[in-house]
């Protein structure tokens, strides 16, 4: 039962720009073990003088890809670890990681559904792992993703989400852009609120499993809103991203 958790040195094998501020890094792990959608890896950076900084990043890739994981990392302007990834890390670099970690904010097909996923910004990453996992599941439970971003260009995995939704009538993606919207935008244009949550609940169907991830304030508002709309608190799982990275 005990799963020893040890640091290991991974190798960056691919770097993929998702948006202006968000990039995905593929890490090849010498001691890879299958993860569950929603889990994360801890990343630890060490400077020459021994100074260390550590952060957690959600796994974006589904467990079916063995030997490696994708971490999707948003660059935080005054952060310490994310700028290192965006400005310095290159293919071939080594990154010390520990994981996979998490037993609470996880979903696997055996849990069933329907799934109601609520994401704010880079909070979409662990939920994307869930949707990618779900895409190859059989049966596939209905799923709704309510996804808040600032601008159209900030929407991470935009094309992939559109493709997933187009190919699967059981997946509905509801988007809101809170700062600016492109011409012809038919989605929402404000912060997540009651009407949006109501629409998401209606689209998901009865007794959904709810996963909410993003900045703390968004998570609080969405969780409280869903509970007020009748979702049992025990069915709501949250992962709050802090202000620091």
């Amino acid at each position: 039962m005990p799963e020893p958790l040890a640091w290991q040195i991974s190798t960056v094998t691919a770097i993929r720009v998702e948006t202006a501020e968000v990039t995905s890094f593929t890490l090849e792990l010498p001691s890879w073990r299958p993860h569950r959608a929603g889990q994360h890896y801890d990343v630890r950076l060490t400077a020459a003088d021994g100074y260390q900084a550590q952060r957690s990043y959600s796994i974006a890739s589904p467990p079916s890809r063995s030997g490696e994981v994708d971490l999707t990392i948003e660059k935080i302007a005054d952060g310490e670890v994310s700028p290192y990834f965006h400005d310095t890390v290159a293919v071939g670099d080594k990154v010390e990681v520990r994981g996979p970690i998490g037993g609470y904010f996880v979903w696997e097909p055996a849990f069933g559904g329907p799934l109601l996923l609520v994401a704010g910004g880079s909070g979409v990453v662990p939920l994307m792992a869930m949707l990618r996992e779900r895409a190859s599941a059989d049966p596939r439970p209905p799923a709704v993703l309510l996804y808040s971003s600032r601008n159209f260009d900030d929407v991470i995995y935009r094309d992939e989400l559109a493709a997933l939704a187009a190919a699967d009538t059981g997946l509905r993606v509801i988007q809101t852009l809170t700062r600016s919207q492109p011409a012809g935008w038919t989605g929402y244009d404000r912060r997540i609120d009651r009407p949006m949550l109501s629409e998401a609940i209606a689209a998901a169907g009865p007794a959904p499993l709810v996963y909410i991830c993003g900045p703390t304030l968004l998570v609080e508002a969405a969780a409280n809103g869903l509970v007020e709309l009748g979702v049992p608190p025990a069915q709501v799982r949250t992962e709050r991203f802090g202000p620091t990275s």
């Binding site: 060490t46 400077a47 290192y84 670099d93 080594k94």
Partner: peptide
């Protein structure tokens, strides 16, 4: 040898 992250300096610390 302790592992060192290439090019990582961290927050300015004097």
């Amino acid at each position: 040898d302790r592992f060192v992250s290439r090019g990582f300096v961290g927050r300015a610390r004097e």
